[in-house]
Amino acid sequence: MTLAEGVQLVTFIILTAGVVLAALGVVLSSNIVYSAFLLGGAFISIAGLYLLLNASFVAFAQVLIYVGAVNVLILFAIMLVNKREDFRPLKFNWLRKGLTVLVCGGLFALLSLTVISTPWAVTPTPGASGDEAIYLIGEHFFSDYLLPFELASVLLLMAMIGAIVLARRDFEPEDLITGAAADLQLPERSREELLTGAGKK
């Protein structure tokens, strides 16, 4: 084994351990904010594995999309919602835990059997790798797959507009707010009220 192969093997072991430990932390942590941060660590470790496979574009896309967008969105959703509920013990909690352990153990055994029984012969691939793959992906995006690429951007734009519409607070007249809605009313005033108040002064 050469020095480069040894460094690659040690890096692979460290990144794999990081993925497994971060994934266990996501599942076992009682704090949901810590779980979200550990999920970001798992995504970054997976991006490192992609770099070891010489798939730099997939690694950067992993960091930009999953860590920079999805994980940050999860954190914002957790911190903005901030829903607090009293702890209530669930009925048949031991049964749920037992089923969870059974399903996870079965999946682990199935994946382990697949890893052991699969011949992992390393064969050179004729396709482009490294920076050449990025150029080929860019050419395909703007030639063969231009329509799906543009449709994906329109879909993301629609999702952003929908999020803005859902997050926007509409002002309601005070005489229509009754009951439980009155307790949830925020101490805000509409723009018209602010303008009329400034005009009176």
Rank of each mutant, 00 (worst) to 15 (best):
A159I: 06
Y66M: 09
G199Y: 09
F142T: 00
L194F: 10
Y34N: 07
S112M: 15
I46C: 07
I13S: 10
A167I: 02
L64G: 05
L51C: 08
V72P: 01
F92C: 01
R168F: 13
G162A: 11
I46T: 14
E5D: 15
L51G: 07
V115E: 05
A182I: 01
V33R: 08
V72T: 03
L51V: 07
L151N: 10
E5Q: 14
G130H: 03
A182Q: 10
A55D: 10
G6K: 12
T118K: 05
A69Y: 06
G130Y: 07
D144M: 13
P126C: 05
L90P: 01
S29V: 00
D131Q: 09
L146I: 10
L194Q: 09
A182N: 09
S29Y: 06
L146F: 05
V33C: 01
D170Q: 05
D144R: 14
L194D: 12
T2N: 14
F43V: 14
I14M: 14
N54H: 14
L21T: 02
F141R: 10
D131L: 15
G127Y: 09
L53Y: 11
G105A: 15
L194G: 02
V70K: 01
V122D: 08
G40P: 03
L184Y: 09
Y135E: 12
L184V: 01
V10A: 15
Y66N: 14
L157V: 05
I116G: 02
D144N: 11
I13K: 11
Q62T: 08
V63S: 09
S153V: 13
N71C: 12
E132W: 03
T2G: 15
G199L: 14
G105F: 11
A167W: 04
L184K: 14
V58L: 15
T118F: 01
R169S: 08
V7I: 13
F108R: 00
T118G: 04
L113H: 10
L147F: 12
L195M: 11
L80P: 00
A181T: 01
F37I: 08
V7T: 02
F57S: 06
P119M: 08
D86G: 11
Y66K: 13
L194P: 00
T125S: 14
A36S: 10
G127T: 06
R168M: 12
G18V: 00
